[in-house]
């Protein structure tokens, strides 16, 4: 109930209205008791988390198990310290066994022992002391070049005045990548700069729609669209009103990511989890064999600057 109310209040007055109605009915007659049936049966599942990237300083694997939701709760870390964890570069034909680090409970080697290279295929194998084994594989996405992302169509509208929020202007920007190779491309946001008629600069942030992840399939051009009214911040901060037309798009910069399917799937799950207690439950993602949960994913990024 607390989670529900917290979420409802966070959604503003509409949420309060609906929440008050539901609560009124719910509190009017409901009886809360201990359930007469046992809680859902806890199933101990091996969890394996590993993200590979040429950017990482180490190659690490976090190996543990799920803990019960009902019953006695514990904050202690759940881990396996006696497993054999092997990372193999299938493209180069090399492999390394990762030792267990008792300080932070992960299996790790430095990247000098197992370099992570773009476009190479890797496999991680885990064998527990009791003989259970799990594996997964990933292909490191291609390296991005600083000019891979280009400006497509863009436009900036006329200034509009709003007493409460200050000046605003409509901005449409399209970023595109031509001839993409396979992978998942993503940009959370870009910092955008507009220049007004008297040469002053106004900065803001543009967010791309939805989760912002686009899948490239090898031959198409990916497009990322931003279309919104932008509130200008300048001079005295929010509510500043000193910009004059014409407004121009001066450029944008930000971090552009690329990752593999495993990473994309687990990220989408995270993105969908908004904390809404009425939302459909999100099952744990896994690309491991034999019922383990967790993710083997790979990623890379590049910092991009877009100029008109």
């Amino acid at each position: 109930m607390k989670t529900v109310l917290k979420y409802i209040v966070g959604k503003g007055q509409l949420g309060l209205l609906l929440g008050a109605l539901i609560s009124l009915l719910g509190l009017a007659s409901c009886i809360e008791k201990d359930a007469k049936i046992p809680p859902p049966e806890y199933s101990k599942r091996t969890s394996i988390i590993c993200y590979l990237s040429p950017r990482n300083a180490n190659v690490s694997v976090q190996l543990g198990f799920t803990v019960p939701y009902f019953g006695v709760q514990s904050d202690t870390v759940s881990y396996y310290s006696d497993a054999k964890v092997t990372v193999s570069d299938l493209s180069a034909g090399t492999s390394v066994v990762l030792p267990f680090n008792r300080v932070d409970f992960v299996y790790r080697v430095g990247k000098n022992k197992m370099p992570i290279l773009n476009d190479h295929q890797y496999r991680v194998d885990v064998v527990l002391a009791d003989g259970r084994s799990y594996s997964a594989s990933t292909q490191i996405p291609p390296k991005l070049g600083p000019t891979d992302l280009q400006l497509g169509k863009f436009s900036v509208g006329k200034l509009e005045q709003n007493q409460q929020f200050g000046q605003q202007v409509s901005v449409n920007v399209e970023l595109k990548m031509g001839n993409t190779r396979k992978g998942f491309y993503y940009s959370p946001q870009f910092d955008i700069v507009l220049e007004d008629g008297q040469g002053d600069f106004y900065g803001n942030t543009m967010y791309f729609k939805g989760s912002g992840v686009e899948e490239g399939i090898g031959s198409d051009t990916l497009r990322f669209f931003y279309q919104e009214r932008m509130w200008l911040q300048g001079g005295g901060g929010m509510g500043g009103g000193s910009a004059i037309d014409p407004m121009k798009f001066n450029g944008a910069e930000g971090t552009f990511w690329v990752f593999d399917k495993g990473y994309a799937e687990s990220y989408n799950k995270f993105f969908e989890d908004t904390g809404n207690p009425f939302a459909e439950p999100i099952l744990l993602y896994s690309n491991w064999s034999n019922g383990a949960v967790g993710t083997l994913g790979s990623f890379d990024w590049e910092e991009m600057t877009i100029t008109p």
Partner: peptide
Amino acid sequence: TMPQGYLRGTGHYPSTMPEIWDPS
């Protein structure tokens, strides 16, 4: 559908600041 357990781990999510994955 009811919860039966927790998975605890170190995630990694693409953010505005480039960030490596280091669970240490």
